[in-house]
């Protein structure tokens, strides 16, 4: 990774009890080779599962695989500086906010840091209690503001909420967080790529342009909490040149169930680019990874909501290629 490039930051927010710490532990259990740093600002211990911890040095906890975790109290920018000074600085940063913090405000604070940028805001909601939280006399407006700023909303504890509860939660979300894309999950078990983004290797390893079972291997038995039971990915092969802006518009539209996407493509004028999509947010940057013969695209969505055929049709209809 380019040392001068800003560190991409995923902000994980959500009210108390939504599953933020569970998500952090899940991700640290599945770093998939990423050197992850986690900054925690909750009113409570850094609740990292003990078996993940290699060593502790004051506020800093060293984890297996070169990952680190620390709490930042009121000094986020100072914590970012300390991370940058580590012998092996992190490649991905995840910030777990406090239960009453506004993740959007934290994203704006990151603009004050010279070498970090907010790449995604993921907000967890306890699907079982979300409606009560939204209507709480004290914290309802805080919970609503947290969700309104999300790129992705993870409706956690979907097994407890049941399909009807999930459906009611989605209705409320559609009204108060129209930008956010939502997906149910259980025990915050989600693909790490959903949170951190899909990297170039992740696109390359999905060479086959078909609806393969997610994340390699045969289609799993849908154990109720596994990520594979709730999420699916598809990979598509595209023409050598595509109108990337139009493609981004298709992928960020809510209709096709795309939560995350990564494309390695050549734009219609031949410029090699990487397209990164999280919810309604798309980012297009120059990239050396694009294959001159074909474009590649990987999408992650909720199983059952991500519709590969419809997506292909929409791309064919809307995106100019060459």
């Amino acid at each position: 990774m380019d040392a001068a490039a800003p560190l991409p930051v995923t902000i994980v927010g959500g009210y108390l009890g939504a599953g933020k710490t569970t998500l952090v532990n899940h991700l640290l259990r599945h770093p998939d080779g990423r050197r992850i740093a986690v900054l925690v600002n909750d009113f409570g211990d850094i609740a990292i599962d003990a078996d993940l911890i290699d060593a502790r040095d004051g506020d800093l906890i060293a984890l297996a695989g070169g990952c680190v975790c620390c709490s930042f109290g009121s000094d986020l920018l100072g914590a970012l500086e300390r991370l940058a000074e580590l012998p092996a600085p992190p490649e991905r940063l995840l910030i777990e906010t406090s239960g009453v913090a506004l993740p959007g405000a934290l994203a704006r604070t990151l603009t004050l840091a010279p070498r970090a940028r907010a790449a995604a805001i993921v907000v967890l909601a306890d699907a079982e209690t979300l409606e009560a939280r939204l209507d709480d006399r004290y914290v309802g407006d805080t919970v609503r503001a947290q969700l309104a700023e999300a790129d992705l909303v993870l409706l956690n504890k979907a097994d407890l909420a049941g399909p009807a509860g999930i459906a009611r939660s989605r209705l409320r979300l559609a009204a108060l967080a129209p930008r956010a894309r939502a997906s149910p999950c259980v025990r915050a078990a989600v693909p790490a790529e959903l949170v951190f983004g899909i990297d170039a290797d992740g696109v390359a390893t999905r060479a086959a342009p078909d609806d393969r079972p997610p994340f390699g291997g045969p289609r799993p038995a849908p154990a109720s909490h596994a990520a594979s039971a709730w999420f699916a990915s598809i990979s598509l092969e595209l023409a050598p040149r595509v109108d990337v802006a139009r493609l981004a518009a298709v992928l960020t539209a809510p209709a096709h169930g795309v939560l995350r996407a990564k494309g390695l493509l050549r734009d219609i004028d031949g410029t090699p680019v990487a397209l990164q999509v999280v919810g309604a947010r798309a980012e297009i940057v120059a990239s050396g990874h694009a294959d001159p013969d074909r474009g590649r695209l990987v999408c992650i969505g909720a199983r059952g909501a991500l519709d590969g055929a419809a997506l292909r049709a929409a791309i064919a209809a809307a995106v100019r290629t060459a």
Partner: peptide, 23 residues
């Protein structure tokens, strides 16, 4: 500061919780 209705005189949005009431 967190104000009850009718909130701030100049219409500013309500303030911030630094701790959740349940904490």
């Amino acid at each position: 500061a967190r104000l009850r209705w009718p909130g701030y005189f100049n219409g500013a949005p309500n303030g911030l919780w630094y701790l959740a009431p349940e904490q």
